[in-house]
Write a protein that binds this DNA or RNA. Structure first.
Length: 134
RNA sequence: AGAGAAAAAUGACUUCAUCGCUCCGGUUAAACGGAGAGGAAAGUCCGGGCUGCAUAGGGCACCGCACCGGGUGAAAAGCCCGGGAGCAAAUUUGAAAGAAUUUGUUACAGAUAGGGCCACAGAAACAAACCGCCUUCGGGCAAGGGUGAAAAGGGGGUGUAAGAGACCACCGCAGUCUUUAGCAAUAAAGCUGGCCAGGUAAACCUUGUGGGCAGUAAGACCAUGUAGACCAAGGAUGUUUGAGCAAUCAAAUUGAAGGGCGGCUCGUCCGGUCUUGGAGGGUAGGUCGCAUAGAUAAAUGAUGAGGCUACUGCAAAGUAGAACAGAACCCGGCUUAUGUUUUUUCUCUGAAC
RNA sequence: UGCCCGAUCGUCUAAUGGCAGGACAGCAGAUUUUGAUUCUGCUUGUAUAGGUUCGAAUCCUGUUCGGGCAA
């Protein structure tokens, strides 16, 4: 059980990000959109995540910073939910709400999304991976 | 004393613990140690550094700036300090005109260098004469005339045919004049001018003065390798000169067409094609540029406890840690946004003298 | 992040510093048995705050909003 979230656990490569947005599947809920994707390249790190907030919904930079900090913190404390999964996984959390949220609200939303992803990945073990290598 | 407005200063509240983030040091790897958002980081309105374009050159065009002295700065500027002038308000004084003081404010050169424009109204908008006044009927005059933002100093007297700075006193105005004070802008006094002449330069323009253009996505390096493009050498070509009627031959030259120097021009640099050799851009990205914070889908956060401050409450206690707002090459100025507290100025209300 | 542009009726656009005009749309009326077409009339605007000027959509400055270029 580790609670770290260093540079290696975040997605920073431009190609990985483009791949993720092109091929990922989504788990939607009000005010939060979670994308997940099994990567085919650069698999040395098992679990990687990224966090975004739309500039359209939040004009001021300090609001976007605050929401991204909330998302990062909540993911850091709850990412051990996905520890049982075998393969590597890329994640992207996008906050789609219109108002500045409370910390508790974000915590619950991220936890629910992680549980949902865990459930889906376990129920469909290896049918998805070959098709994505194209 | 209270309330309000403006300006200036202040500005993650502070300490500890736990879990974490970015960079640097350290280590085989850890442990560990150090640093880590703002007064505006914002707007991008001005500059400077830095980088490339030729080493950044001349002229024109274009774009700024404009009272005086000092400081900062390479410099016009900007900013700071002090002064001058104009404008506005208040107070005092005065019969009034005005004067003085205080406060605020000013994108403060030139309108006899030049042309342009001044709608409507009005006789007339810089031109004089429509009505008018006088007349010896040739003419003289600009006092009076509903306009307008603006109509060739003011009101009084002399004077006259009627009038007019035509003349006189006072006030106002102007001055490449003189003296005095001041480094200067300028001011005061005198003298001169009858007052030659509206406004607009934040329209063109003139004078003085400054500016080459682009921007870190600048720019440099590494990786991969087919065509094209690039560099070097050689051949050939071009130009000029000489010989020759001419074809052509010999010598000299790297010039010509064209292109670069992001508007034009001068100036300056490169120079068609083929062969051989070199070099290695994009398709694909990465590193540097890059910092006593320094990332690159972009770090400063979360939780708990104590203190402090504010608010609610008789108290116990509870709530909150604010407003504006998040570095992206660096630095200076300007502008705009802004909670609390403090200071200064002004306005209003109340109380006392 | 850096560098640049622009803002006029509901929409598309004109306008030397001098009464903000046109088209479409909307509303009302006329024509028609009714509707469409057509005709007549009306309504609706210079993004915002200051300044220069006698006078500002226009000139100057600040702000707000929108858009473009550079991988």
């Amino acid at each position: 059980m580790s609670f770290t979230l260093g540079k290696e656990e975040r997605i920073k490569s431009r190609k990985s990000i483009e791949n993720l947005f092109r091929e990922a599947k989504a788990v939607r809920s009000p005010a939060l959109l979670a994308l997940y994707h099994v990567p085919t390249i650069n698999t040395e790190h098992r679990l990687q995540a990224m966090f975004t907030v739309s500039k359209k919904n939040f004009k001021r930079a300090h609001d976007r910073n605050a929401i991204k900090r909330y998302l990062r913190e909540c993911y850091r404390l709850q990412k051990n939910i996905l520890n049982d999964l075998p393969g590597p996984l890329h994640l992207c959390f996008t906050f789609t709400g219109r108002q500045l949220p409370e910390y508790e609200y974000v915590y619950k939303k991220v936890g629910a999304a992680l549980l949902e992803i865990d459930r889906i990945m376990k129920s469909t073990p290896k049918d998805e991976t070959p098709s994505q290598e194209k």
